[in-house]
Every structure is written in structure tokens, then in C-alpha cells.
Amino acid sequence: MYGLVRRLPFVLFFLVYFWTNVSGQTSAPGKDCVSKSNTSCEECLKNVTCLWCKSNQQCVDYPVRTVLPPKSLCPLPEARWGLCWVNFQALIITMSVAAAIIIIAVVVCCFRCCKRKKPRDMRADATMERQAEVRKVHQEERRTEMRLRHDEIRTKYGLTKENAYARFEDN
């Protein structure tokens, strides 16, 4: 989880970069972020590589190597990146919650899809039930045939079911 939180600013960086380029704000590669200090947040964030610190009104280069800006540079609640009205901490929390919800939704969907029976499975179940019924009928027929054979043998040797002790009385 910690690794995901550490990589999240990179993902956000690319999302904001593409969003700002599509919305008409282009990055100025030749201009330095420090030169935009003491101007405005909007002016600073026109360049997507810049980070605005609201507490000291400074525009600084985004520290890409540390992923999250260090507290010595600017505290997270005061940092603005991409949008002036969203602080960096809220942006990270919101994106983490959104990512978690999406991951949970995908896992639930996969679980439900795997659990649901497919039409082929229903046909296979119906076939298995028919085969089980046929086996049950054959088994009953065999039991009936065995009973008839046993009854024939009993009558042949005088061992009828009505009175099993009758042969002992003849002695």
C-alpha cells in the first residue's frame, strides 16, 4: 500500500499534464518555475512541472525524485499542483480512495462473473441429472431382477418368505 501511495504522484502528474495540455494550458519549457514566484497560483501552474506553495507564495520545481514534496519545501496541505483550488494532500487522498473503490469494484465484478453459471454449465447440469436418473432406473431394474431370482431360488429349495421356520418344524 505504501508503494502505491509513493507512485501516485507520478500518475497524477501525467494525468494533470495531459489535462492541462488538452484544456489549453501549455507548459512553458523555457521558463523556470522560480521566476514565477510571488505572482499567482494560476500563473505558476501553467507549467505542469511547477509546484505552488500557498503559505510563502513561492513557485518551485516539482521534486520528481522524492515523489512527494518534502515538508521543508512545502507542507502538503499548502502545496498546489495541477489545480489551484485543490491542495496536494486532498488530491492524494481523493485519488487513493478513488483507486481503492475502482480496485474493489473490479474484484467484486470478477468474483461475481466467476461465480455465475454459464449457459453451457446449465446444459451440462441438465445432462448430468438425466444421466443420474437413467442410472437410477437401471439400478432399480437390476434390484427387481435380483429379487425375482432370489425368490425363484427360495421357492425351488422350499425357502419361502411366508414362513422361514417351516422347514425346521418337519423334523
Score class of each variant (00 low, 15 high):
58 Q>W: 00
149 R>K: 13
78 E>K: 08
107 V>Q: 04
40 S>C: 03
13 F>L: 06
25 Q>L: 13
78 E>F: 05
8 L>F: 12
75 P>F: 02
49 T>D: 12
24 G>L: 05
118 K>T: 14
159 L>V: 00
114 C>L: 14
127 T>A: 11
23 S>I: 09
53 C>W: 00
75 P>C: 04
76 L>E: 00
117 K>P: 00
43 E>Y: 14
98 A>V: 07
27 S>Y: 10
54 K>Y: 08
50 C>Y: 14
152 E>L: 10
94 T>L: 09
33 C>E: 02
159 L>C: 02
123 R>K: 09
74 C>E: 04
148 L>V: 12
51 L>V: 06
99 A>F: 15
76 L>A: 03
25 Q>K: 10
103 I>L: 15
137 V>K: 01
168 F>K: 00
111 F>D: 02
9 P>M: 09
141 E>K: 13
84 C>R: 05
3 G>R: 01
76 L>T: 03
30 G>R: 05
170 D>V: 09
50 C>F: 14
24 G>I: 02
99 A>S: 15
103 I>K: 15
109 C>Y: 13
98 A>P: 00
84 C>D: 03
13 F>M: 06
23 S>F: 13
93 I>F: 14
20 T>L: 15
169 E>S: 08
38 N>G: 00
75 P>H: 04
56 N>E: 09
157 Y>M: 06
37 S>Y: 04
100 A>P: 06
126 A>H: 10
149 R>P: 03
33 C>W: 06
29 P>I: 10
170 D>Q: 08
150 H>S: 09
15 L>C: 09
140 E>W: 04
168 F>G: 00
97 V>L: 15
37 S>L: 09
133 E>K: 08
115 K>F: 03
78 E>W: 08
17 Y>A: 11
146 M>A: 11
36 K>H: 10
170 D>H: 10
97 V>M: 14
104 I>H: 11
114 C>S: 11
67 V>T: 15
34 V>T: 13
160 T>A: 15
52 W>A: 05
51 L>P: 11
49 T>H: 08
101 I>P: 01
144 T>C: 00
65 R>I: 05
20 T>R: 15
114 C>D: 04
104 I>F: 11
114 C>R: 08
118 K>V: 07
151 D>T: 06
100 A>H: 11
142 R>N: 01
37 S>A: 01
60 V>T: 07
168 F>L: 00
58 Q>L: 09
81 W>I: 02
82 G>N: 11
60 V>Y: 04
